[in-house]
Design a protein around this nucleic acid. Structure first.
Lengths: 243, 243
DNA sequence: CGCTACCTTGATTTCGGTCAAGATACGTGG
DNA sequence: CCACGTATCTTGACCGAAATCAAGGTAGCG
């Protein structure tokens, strides 16, 4: 019973706060949405949620753990499209074509909510707020993707790593400490996401550690000099968007 | 009268075929949507549709001409986020925050449709197909943005230019010849969009011309060896997505 | 006609990729 | 508990693609 309640609360957090979009659903509406959400047992590390080419059936929200979406190019090497942390929704890119163009796998033991798209689609034409909410979620994903493009076109490796860490820290801060957190992904995933070589990621992390900007121990990261990291990243962005 | 009719037809094309999403609205529904669309006189070259920071009011569709969206970073240099050609919708990234985070300006004399968001929002809760259509449009924008990310992380300059030209050619082919078209944007815009220096764009275009892949005269481009260009771009993508 | 914006080409530099080798961590089975 | 194999990370040396710097050419416009 208390277990069931816990799920409700956590799924309320999932489906509605995905990517931190402010929401305005009534409790009644939340219940309706929750009823449409499937919950399944946690995924083991490296298990896939869907693979590129799979028919699009559902959207997903991370409840705990972390997901990466990626695709494999013809040379066989991986490109990491995005990481998703608790509360964030993924699978949005498949709505258009009806098929997933990327794969999604768990970076660690991960629990997700599955939201069948046809039910969401039907619901959102009834609950106006939900439709608005979905538009905003999709729009937010577009903004985020375009922000990443900025990073890829205009920033050097150090700025990319800096921005990435600030972003992760910011997205994690509801769940962990904003200055100290664990990176659930491998260095090579970060490299593939930011368009650089693993060696470069490693070198830059070491350099930031030597400069007392970061404390690093394996996958544990501590931001020692937040201001310094911001300067390095040349990122006005962080926090200014959420005053 | 025939003039009014022409607008209707063109706006039907605009609002419904934006970014080539297949649609399924009835004529009745199309009429309703058209009634919500504002038409205004064409924009001169370099006139802005909206500026970064402006309150989000409407979505826009290009009827003729071309639009670029861009932002200016703190160093004062421009980053071109995307180009939009006839039939394509822009402004989608502003739905979430309620403010435009990029600016949009006309690359040449350009006619656009303006679709007030509150009206679209209201309509799409009534017309289910329209809502579906909007979800797909937003999702498509996400896919395109992620495709650009691939280009920026994994491709070298020649591959970027090649992919870009194939993309433009593909998006233009409904309106112009697929092998021969005019680039409405300056070299420096292409450079800022693809994350490279103008000089590199120029050098690569010259090289492709020397290799008899392209014929270039100012902004007029002719693809002489389509297969060669595809090979250079390492792009399976073109056409395989639309069988 | 001259100004300005845009484009091209060449010379030089540099950031980050690639190659290579070792270090560290981790899981499994003896 | 330890030995071994594998995956991941780090560090160094070298090299190359593309940025930067510099200069000249071209085209459109008042």
């Amino acid at each position: 019973m208390s277990d069931h309640r816990k799920y409700d609360v956590s799924c309320r957090a999932c489906s509605l706060n995905a990517r931190c979009v402010p929401h305005s659903l009534t409790d009644r509406e939340v219940e309706i949405v929750n009823a449409a959400v499937k919950r399944s047992k946690p995924l083991q590390r490296n298990k896939t949620v869907f693979e590129a080419g799979d028919k699009f059936v559902s959207l997903y929200v991370v409840r705990s753990g972390a997901i990466k979406t990626y695709s494999i190019d013809q040379e066989g090497d991986e490109r990491v499209i995005c990481f998703y942390f608790p509360g964030e929704m993924f699978g949005l890119d498949a709505i258009d074509s009806g098929h997933h163009i990327s794969s999604a796998k768990a970076l660690e033991t991960t629990a997700i909510c599955e939201i069948p798209y046809d039910r969401l689609d039907a619901l959102s034409s009834k609950i106006h707020n939900l439709q608005t909410h979905m538009y905003r979620l999709l729009s937010k994903e577009i903004s985020e993707d375009q922000r990443l493009q900025l990073l890829l076109t205009k920033k050097n490796s150090e700025e990319r790593i800096g921005s990435f860490l600030l972003d992760v820290s910011h997205r994690y801060q509801q769940h962990q400490s904003p200055t100290s957190f664990r990176l659930p992904m491998a260095r090579v995933d970060i490299a593939n996401h930011l368009g650089m070589a693993v060696e470069t990621v490693s070198r830059i992390l070491t350099r930031l550690q030597n400069n007392r900007i970061l404390g690093i121990e394996g996958n544990e990261v501590e931001i020692l000099d937040h201001h310094g990291l911001r300067t390095i990243s040349r990122s006005i962005e962080t926090e200014t968007l959420t005053p």
